[in-house]
Design a binder for these strands. Structure first.
Lengths: 205, 205
DNA sequence: GTCTATATTTGGATAGAC
DNA sequence: GTCTATCCAAATATAGAC
C-alpha cells in the first residue's frame, strides 16, 4: 500500500511536470519556458524536478514527441471507398483536420511546432516529411481515384493535393494565431467547409 | 573633412550593427540573438553598442520595422487593367510574391516573422492585417472584376482571394524552411507558376 | 522525493578612462 | 566612440540534509 502510494505520487508528479511543461513550452517556446517557471507552476523546487528528468532538454523532447503523433486515421480502404463518392472524401479529410485545429492538445503541439520551426533543423525536416508529405500522399491517392472515375477534372494529383492542403494549413495557422490571443474565430469557423465547397465546385466535372 | 569622416564612421557602425542584427535576429530570434553575439560579429564591445542604441529592444524594433514594409506595388489602375485580361493579373501578383520569397532581405524578414509570430501579440495582429488582409483586398478586387467580365466563374471574391493567397503563403513557408538549411528548392521553384495555372484552369469560364 | 544552499554560465546594461 | 571593468539578474544544474 505504502509502496503503491509512493509510486503513484512519483508518477503523478512526473505527469504533472509534463502537462505543465507542455503548456509553457507551447506558449513561450523552449527558451522562454524556464525550469524555474515550470517548477514553480508544478509547485516544487527546481532541484526536485531533476529527480524526474535528467535536464531541461529531456523534458522538452518528451513533450515534443507528441508534435507529429496525430496521423490521419484514414485506411487504404476508407480512402478508396470515400474517394469513389467524391466530395465526401474531401469532407472527411477536412473534418479531421478541423478537429485537430480546435483540439486543445493538438493546438498546443501545433503552436510549439510553429515556435520552434525556425530553431530546429530536425523539426523542419519532420515538418516537411510528417506534416506535409504524409497528407499529400493520402490526398493525392484520393484525387487519383476521383480522376479515374471521372468525378473531377484531370490534373496532377500531387499538385491538386498540394493546393488542397495548403489552404487547410493556412486556416489552421490563422485559427491558432487568433486563439492564442483568445480572439474570436467566428469569421473563420466555417472556412474549412467553405474551402471544401469551393475546391469541389472548382474541380468537379 | 575630419568631421565628415567621423560622421561616416559613426553611421557606418550603426548600419553594420543593424545589418548583423538583422541576420542574427532572423536566424536565432530575439532571445537567441544576444547583445554579446551581435557585438562580437560587428567587432566591437557590447558597451560600444550602447552608443548607437538605447538597448537591445531598440535594435530589434528598428530591424523589425522592415517586416511589413514590402507592400505589393499594384495601383488601382494596374489592378483594373490586368484583371480585365484575367490570368495576367494572377501572374503579376504571384511573380511579385515569388520575388519577395527569394529576395534575401525579405526572406530574413519573413523568417523573423515566423520565429516571433507566437511570441508577440503585436506581430500576430500585424500578420493578420498587414500580411493577410491587404493581400486579400487587392486580390478580391481583381477577382471581382474578372467575374463582372465573365472571365471566371461566379463566387465570393473574398473567399477566392483567401484560397489563392493561402497557397502562395504555404509555398513561401516551405521555400523558407528549405533555404534555411541550404537545401535545394528545385522541386518548389515552379510551384508558384503551377499554382497560377491550376487556379486559373479551375475557375476560368 | 523534496528541500536549502550553492556553483556556474550567460545575458543585459552602466561607469569611467582614453 | 571604443575600451576595460564591473554589476546585476536570470537560468541551468548539482550537493547534501531531511
Amino acid at each position: 500500500m505504502t509502496e503503491n502510494r509512493d509510486k503513484n505520487k512519483g508518477a503523478k508528479t512526473k505527469q504533472k511536470i509534463l502537462k505543465i511543461a507542455t503548456t509553457l513550452f507551447s506558449q513561450l517556446g523552449y527558451r522562454g519556458a524556464s525550469v524555474r517557471k515550470i517548477a514553480a507552476e508544478v509547485g516544487i523546487r527546481e532541484s526536485a524536478l531533476y529527480n524526474h528528468f535528467k535536464n531541461k532538454e529531456e523534458i522538452f523532447l518528451e513533450v515534443a514527441r507528441d508534435i507529429f503523433s496525430s496521423p490521419f486515421s484514414l485506411s487504404e480502404s476508407e480512402i478508396k471507398e470515400l474517394a469513389l463518392r467524391g466530395k465526401p472524401f474531401l469532407q472527411k479529410f477536412t473534418m479531421q483536420y478541423k478537429m485537430l485545429t480546435f483540439d486543445k492538445n493538438s493546438e498546443n503541439m501545433f503552436r510549439l511546432l510553429m515556435i520552434e520551426l525556425m530553431q530546429s533543423q530536425e523539426l523542419r525536416e519532420q515538418f516537411m516529411s510528417e506534416f506535409h508529405d504524409k497528407s499529400v500522399k493520402v490526398l493525392s491517392e484520393g484525387f487519383f481515384l476521383m480522376m479515374q472515375n471521372g468525378l473531377i477534372r484531370s490534373a496532377d494529383p500531387m499538385l491538386m493535393a498540394y493546393e488542397f492542403i495548403s489552404t487547410l494549413f493556412y486556416i489552421r495557422l490563422q485559427v491558432t494565431v487568433l486563439r492564442f490571443d483568445s480572439k474570436s474565430t467566428n469569421a473563420l469557423s466555417t472556412q474549412f467547409e467553405k474551402h471544401v465547397d469551393f475546391f469541389w465546385e472548382s474541380n468537379r466535372i
